[in-house]
Design a protein around this nucleic acid. Structure first.
Lengths: 338, 338
DNA sequence: ATACTGTATGTAAGCGTTTACATTCACCAT
DNA sequence: ATGGTGAATGTAAACGCTTACATACAGTAT
């Protein structure tokens, strides 16, 4: 009747090993010097009792959580998966935990239990559009470690960011369409509004038009939302409106799926009648028929580097304010090549 | 000089509102009755001070973390993304946090900082193949709330599980191939070995062969690993070995991409020369050309329900031991239809 | 007046760690 | 013998909450 069946604590270990809890703590954390023999005894007790330190107690006492938070507007798109993989690699390499938050709810009802995970993490990775400006401002002022993903410009705030070379990538892509395939009426499907990527890509698109003396036609801008279904609807609308075009820059690869489907259903041949290009170079792009011409973006690497940056900030080091990873054209068949 | 600039605690709130910390705690958590007027004062103090409760302290004091952990072998495949979305929906609806662990490292060096997140979460969602039997056994015995994903049979253990109807789905798929398209030599690309799904799908495949009097030919089994690249290699190997076949059941949609690419490169027409079918019905399948015939699996729903089950277990309720969600044929063109 | 009831709040004991500081002891130089 | 040193360990005070229990008070029934 003497087993009160409770999960073992550091005290139990200490008692069993015949030492004080301080010594147990020391051997667990490997700080200070502990006699080798004592270490052995403590280790033995730990595995004997199947002891697992309470991370809550540890966090409370040490004021650090060994956890980083990831804020995303929503989990969707194969894009996200690559980034997450990079992030997970970064955190687990550093022995940090990863907490994921979707902010759609937060944005809607502001009455969340944990206002912002600040109390729950040592730092935050914030994906484009997951937080309103005001919140970002507050975070920045509070000195809480934050790294922005695919978002660089926050009005009046300087927060470190990691993103990819959108403008140049889009520019080369559209250049290719114009120069190699003679396209003149190129549709651009923009992404979500909060999403800075879309703005840069559009700038690249416009710059290319400019450089080639092609006037910008607002009628050729559709809303693809970086999303398959929206993109499909956007193309259907253009078709219904009888807007003529000879190419579609879908905004990203996800959207290009919708474009492909819409065109196919309308009996329009790709790339013979209309060229289609995407952005990101996701896994499935090579398997589409025609295989998709797109821009390769090192998405996993973005995630990984963002974690590295964040970890540095948590350590109090100063980091590069802006990391822009290079992109490269991935020419396949949907533009008319091959 | 009296601002020692520390993050506000419950004490600061209490002082400012002129009440005791107990009252603050009560109003925050909405338990017990608190005078409406007092509530207002406390609320005001909270927002004035920008107070955020320390979740570590809260966890420690209440012995619950409001967090659930997700264990996956690795983050890959579009499949994962759907499931994660469902899981996230479930957790955020219940105001729980979500902690993600990739177990490849754990499986390799067993000397992780947090042996298993048991101390860190109120319950665990364990995806197929992320944990060795022994560990599962230990968890099961420790009474720690666990729900298995896409894995039902753990030797000697009864743990609640959520999965999809693999066998029947595969069976219908192969039936279709045989009955409608007259296929006789159907390749099956198996998934990762730890992955129970693959086993069931193979059983469905075999059952269909049996039912149609077609002998099982081991030469037609390849290793696709539910992965695009492995699948591509597997098909290339079959081709190189001169094994004749008139259809490929790729195991899952990811693998079918590899199959499509391998066949295309070999100049084999789909579906004219060889029919190709997948499993899962991921987002991109409809955009492939030919569009992919596959089996629709409610992956997001699996994630969502798994969370519900887990939360029930955490609440101490008993739950259904096995939830098997129905699958349905998604007939498109890659089998020869349409 | 007295005792009871219910409402609103306060008091203080944990929760399981980390860590600054104190202690002990052996050893060596004086 | 005396003091100083360093290594190994112990003591106890946080850390910021939750919650069982105690208290205070107003209203109501006796």
């Amino acid at each position: 009747m003497e087993h009160k069946k409770h999960t073992p604590t550091i005290k139990d270990v200490a008692r069993m090993a015949g030492v004080s809890i301080a010594t147990v703590s020391r051997t667990i954390n490997g700080i200070d010097v502990v006699n080798e023999e004592t270490v052995q005894r403590v280790r033995a007790a730990i595995s004997e009792l199947n002891y697992i330190p309470s991370s809550a107690a540890r966090m409370l006492a040490s004021r650090k959580t060994s956890t980083i938070g990831l804020l995303v507007p929503e989990i969707s798109g194969a894009f996200f998966q690559s980034m997450l993989r990079g992030i997970e690699r970064g955190t687990s390499l550093a022995d940090y935990d990863l907490l994921i938050y979707t902010t759609q709810h937060i944005l809607a009802n502001s009455d969340r239990r944990s206002p912002l995970a600040e109390n729950n993490t040592d730092g935050l990775l914030v994906f484009a559009g997951s937080l309103p400006q005001a919140e970002l401002l507050r975070l920045s002022r509070s000195q809480f470690p934050v790294v922005l993903l695919h978002q660089t410009a926050v009005e009046g705030v300087q927060l470190p960011a990691v993103t990819v070379e959108n403008r140049q990538g889009a520019r080369s892509l559209v250049d290719h369409l114009i120069e190699v395939h003679g396209c003149r009426r190129i549709v651009y499907l923009e992404g979500p509004h909060e999403h800075e990527d879309s703005m840069w890509r559009e700038q690249g698109y416009r710059a290319s038009l400019d450089a080639h003396g092609i006037p910008f036609d607002p009628a050729l801008i559709g809303h693809g939302g970086f999303n398959r279904h929206l993109a499909q609807a956007a193309i259907e609308k253009l078709l219904a409106d009888n807007i003529a075009f000879d190419a579609v820059f879908a905004g990203d690869d996800d959207a290009s799926i919708g474009v492909l489907v819409a065109l196919r259903e309308a009996g329009i041949a790709v790339p013979q009648d209309v060229a289609v290009v995407g952005f990101d170079d996701q896994d499935f792009t090579a398997a589409l028929l025609p295989s998709l011409t797109t821009v390769r973006a090192p998405t996993e690497q973005v995630g990984y580097l963002a974690v590295r940056q964040l970890l540095r900030r948590i350590q109090g080091e100063t980091v590069e304010m802006k990391l822009v990873l290079p992109t490269a054209l991935a020419i396949r068949q949907s533009c008319g090549c091959g």
